[in-house]
Design a protein around this nucleic acid. Structure first.
Lengths: 150, 150
DNA sequence: CTTCTAAATCGTAATGATTCTGATTTAGGA
DNA sequence: TCCTAAATCAGAATCATTACGATTTAGAAG
């Protein structure tokens, strides 16, 4: 996770490319918000991203962070993880994956599952409307918190 | 859905019984909040419940509605449906079911699916922690809104 | 390299949802 | 009927997010 991680450089290049293709201006702020998300595997909330990017761009405003996250989500560059309470959590890992949220500490863990990816939607659903997104969310107590309980 | 719907009476009796068993005081406010949820199939948010119950108990406070919903959820009497944005939505239907949320109007539709109920969790998950809840949420455009678009 | 303009940003105020506080009331047991 | 912990009330406070009006800037065009 150094300043010159080739993986991150590559993702930033892909990010720049997508922005260009979509007609999104490639601003310093946008790049730094995206870098913050693509650098780590945590799922920080908007406030955390704001705090971290502020160290590099002291003048950035919360509004920009919120708007940028919404824009990136619209263009499929980041994902928003729903929480039962509190703030939304973001993620630049766009591979098909699912989330396990700890009810105690709130951490969001990624996991992969073909069964979940391929789950068949009940036919009756087409009466309800057009499905755009299927989202499985697991909740429970993560191993760390379970250990801490004893 | 009349004032004396026998089904609702039965559910209110079960509610009273659960409260007694759990040592929860059976207050007028609690009963009316629960009645509001068990009477309809919509998924009102806290503010809506507050507004409706206020007609019968003008002195009820928002705080009571919020606290009551949290208490009922804790005791397995209502479910909270997560929303991508906006306010949480509640539901007294405790049968195993899933939600389809319309991205346009925000309505929450219930549906049933054995495939979803019985979905196998990946084995690797047990390393992450203890799963307590598996929740499939679909998003899209409901039939009503799709019609309105044309 | 300069000019132009729509898009993006900034700082702050406003909003909406929810929770907290401290005083008061009440359900249900003794 | 009395007592007490639990629940309620009204309103202030907090937290997350969005809106607003003024200013700046990325990137296209000349």
């Amino acid at each position: 996770m150094t300043a010159h991680d080739p993986d991150i450089e590559r993702r930033l290049e892909a990010f720049a490319e997508t922005c260009r293709r979509r007609g999104l201006k490639l601003t310093h702020q946008r790049t730094e918000v995206f870098r913050e998300l693509t650098a780590g595997a945590e799922h920080p909330d908007a406030e955390t991203i704001y705090r971290r990017v502020s160290r590099r761009i002291p003048s950035i405003s919360r509004d920009t962070v919120y708007r940028t996250l919404a824009t990136l989500e619209e263009h499929g560059l980041v994902r928003r993880a729903e929480m039962l309470a509190g703030s939304a959590r973001f993620d630049a890992n766009m591979d098909r994956h699912h989330h396990f949220v700890c009810n105690r500490c709130g951490r969001v863990y990624d996991f992969y599952s073909e069964a979940f990816d391929e789950i068949a939607l009940p036919r009756a659903l087409s009466d309800l409307g057009r499905i755009e997104l299927c989202h499985v969310q697991l909740r429970g107590i993560c191993a760390d918190c379970a250990r801490a309980e004893h």
